[in-house]
Design a protein around this nucleic acid. Structure first.
Lengths: 181, 181, 181, 181
DNA sequence: AATGAATGAGCGTTCATTCAT
DNA sequence: GATGAATGAACGCTCATTCAT
């Protein structure tokens, strides 16, 4: 049971809670209770709740980007990969715990001073942008196109969360296909 | 002195605080202090904090939709109006207190059970969708197109908030123009 | 039982605890438990622990000065009154809960930023100084003399506390008599 | 690198912190962090925080008494030495980190049971008393006089700390001169 | 001799809501 | 219609100390 270390258990527990219940709705006490860790032990590994959130976002970033790249890797051309990223969104939406983008969600209602979290969110979005940029790097005016794809991705995520429906993802995919032609 | 009624003063104060500082970051005490209202008076007008949020969202919906329609009304054709809606986003972004979409923001980190708020957000997004739908109602396959525009609008808002930059709006507008051609 | 209001009960309880057990040793929880008050009720009357300390010191100032003036009032001449103030110290020392000067004590091990408390202590000592000044106001070089008496008073208090003995008070009184001759 | 031993480094660090920031304001973690010592190592040298305080007071006692004796040693007569001890206070007050008497300070807001610390404070004050006693040992009624000088010394220290001014020391010196004549 | 992870208890403070008047 | 006092629960965080290695 206690195979993994305390720190990992805290991050895992906090990740579940932060994503599914929200950052402000998740208290330190809940995290330590579910992780089975003493409060002071937790604060030995993380200086603050904000720092736990940063660890959560870092891990989520790695997982999410990895899943996305795995998903699109089967496609041959870069254009197909870009389009497939919308299929990835749809498969992600179907997962049991879909609550939209963890990075968008945490930034929306954040105390003013939590800059470390905001930086982490920006870093994630920047990496997504880089990925699309690379896939579309061949032509000259592709940066513009990459930005448009990005907007579609973000819009599809937030709108599918609000609407609790996949039509925004389908619409985004259609639009992407048109723009890429 | 007390030109407007108690209820209006509470809504106005709460609106400022909810939008600019965030829903979870805004306490009841802060609202009544800044509104100059006794606590029990506030609870006479609103059963809970959630109800204040609903009132805030209702008013914000009216204001936002009104501003958007004002902005695009000068354009002649419906197509131009749709494109102008992205210019509206950009002018909105330039306003002093831009913090993204109040509806997106409040829904992102919300206690699980606050359905009234979620309903209000959905209602707002549905009305935006209706507006775009109407502007593009002439042709048969326009509902698809309207949905794509919607995704671009939402993506432009959330991404410009995260990036603290207007490039997502510009990209969304470019994409919209291509899709509308 | 509940004749007096909540605020008074908090001050009274906190006064006992702050003086007898020390400011840092006394927790908010202990105060509210012994006062029989809910925590949030306490924070409705006092913004912070520091503010409770200020209220404690203000009341202690009034009581202490009143007792001193009562004690010396029976003496005829001002000189006798000054000397009697040392007798007051000695009678005070004999009281059950003597723990030295509450103002000296609280200032000695205080977080750096608690200026309101420090101000209150200074105010108390300044008022004691004023009292002695007035009693010795007749001659020209009496301010010097008053300051010397003050030093003797303070020294007698702190040293009797450390030594747990009244000899410092007796010594101070002897010295005062010599200086006043 | 590690010129001095672990124990010495702990005492030195704790001394700075205890005197300048206060005993209750100084945490174990801060001490070991600034001393660059592991927590368990610290507890190998000291059974408790109280024991560190005792070591701090012991060293402070030696240093303070030494400085005082150095300062007054240049004076010829014993009477001059006693008077010079007030000049010593004034030079001490001018030092950058003057925060009053470390022994007075630590005793003022102390958990009830920390007897070891209280004993150490008493020991220090007793030694100061001895020093003055010896300097004034010639005549018969000098013990009384020595006690009066002591009261002046203590009063000068505590009052100069509260007032953040040297007038109490000057007043004490004036009084001492009169008493010694 | 030395380590750093782990702990239970407590810190001061704030929350949204209710109640008696 | 309006008030402000009162509340239980929870907040994020720090304390001095101990333990297994």
């Amino acid at each position: 049971m206690k195979k993994q270390g305390v720190k990992e258990r805290i991050i895992e527990t906090a990740s579940d809670l932060f994503y599914n219940n929200g950052y402000n709705q998740t208290g330190i006490n809940q995290i330590i209770a579910e992780a089975g860790v003493a409060k002071a032990s937790m604060y030995q590994h993380f200086r603050s709740k904000e720092d736990i959130a940063v660890a959560y976002l870092k891990q989520r970033h790695i997982n999410w980007m990895g899943s996305l790249q795995d998903f699109v890797s089967s496609k041959k051309t870069n254009k197909e990969k870009v389009i497939a990223s919308f299929d990835y969104l749809e498969s992600w939406l179907s997962s049991v715990n879909y609550r939209g983008c963890g990075f968008q969600n945490i930034i929306c209602d954040l105390p003013q001073d939590q800059h470390k979290i905001k930086d982490q969110v920006l870093l994630h979005k920047t990496d997504v942008k880089k990925l699309i940029d690379i896939l579309l790097h061949e032509d000259s005016n592709q940066e513009d196109l990459a930005n448009e794809i990005l907007v579609l991705l973000e819009g599809a995520i937030i709108l599918s969360q609000i609407q609790k429906n996949s039509w925004p993802i389908k619409a985004a995919k259609r639009a992407a296909i048109k723009l890429l032609d």
